[in-house]
C-alpha cells in the first residue's frame, strides 16, 4: 500500500463516517488523488461507503448500513442533542425537545424526520395525540454516540441552520 493510501485508510479508520470534502481538507490531498485511493480501498474492501442525503461518507469495515447511517447523522450537533435527550427521557415530545434544547420547532421537525427516515428513531402518539420521539435501538445508538464527534465545519453548518430556522423559518 502506498504511503498516501495508508494515510487515507488510517484517516477513515479513526474518523468513521468522514465526508469526502473533509477528508481531502484534513489530509491536504487533491480531489482526484483522494478519489483514486478511496476507489482502490473500496475495491479491496478496506473502506465502505454510505450516501446520506446526497453526501458520501466513508467508513472502515465492520459497520452495517444502519450503523453507517446513524454515525453520519450523529456528526450533527443538534441531532446529537436530540438523541441524548431521547436516551435520557425515553420519549420526549417534539415540543419538549424544542423548548429544552432552545431551538425552533422547524429545526426539531427536520432532524426528527431525518432520524425516522434513517430508522434511528420513530414517532409514537400519546392519548392526547401529541407525537413523541423514541429511539429504535437505544443501546447501539448510545455506543455510536461515543464513536463520533462533529468537526468544526459540521458544527458551523449546524449552528448556521439553527440561526436561520430560529429567525426566518416557520
Amino acid at each position: 500500500m502506498s504511503d498516501v493510501r495508508r494515510t487515507v485508510h488510517n484517516h477513515v479508520e479513526s474518523n468513521p463516517g468522514v465526508h469526502f470534502n473533509e477528508l481531502t481538507r484534513a489530509l491536504d490531498i487533491a480531489t482526484g488523488q483522494a478519489q483514486y485511493h478511496l476507489r482502490r480501498l473500496r475495491d479491496g474492501e478496506s473502506v465502505t461507503v454510505e450516501r446520506v442525503r446526497g453526501r458520501t461518507h466513508y467508513f472502515p469495515p465492520g459497520y452495517d448500513a444502519w450503523e453507517r447511517r446513524t454515525i453520519a447523522l450523529l456528526r450533527r450537533e443538534t441531532v446529537r442533542a436530540i438523541v441524548v435527550r431521547a436516551l435520557a427521557d425515553g420519549a420526549p415530545s417534539e415540543a419538549d425537545l424544542a423548548e429544552d434544547l432552545d431551538v425552533a420547532r422547524s429545526t426539531v421537525s427536520h432532524h426528527v424526520s431525518t432520524l425516522i427516515e434513517a430508522g434511528v428513531a420513530e414517532k409514537c402518539y400519546d392519548e392526547r395525540a401529541r407525537s413523541h420521539v423514541t429511539l429504535t435501538r437505544p443501546e447501539e445508538t448510545r455506543r455510536l454516540l461515543d464513536e463520533v464527534t462533529p468537526s468544526l465545519p459540521e458544527k458551523l453548518v449546524d449552528r448556521f441552520t439553527r440561526v436561520v430556522d430560529d429567525t426566518l423559518c416557520d
Binding site: R53, G54, H110, P153, L156, V157, F160, T161, V164, L168, C169
Partner: peptide
C-alpha cells in the same frame, strides 16, 4: 455555510 444549509433543507428561505 449557506450552501450547506440549503442542501440540507432545500427551502425557499
Amino acid at each position: 455555510l449557506g450552501l450547506a444549509g440549503y442542501r440540507r433543507r432545500g427551502t425557499r428561505v
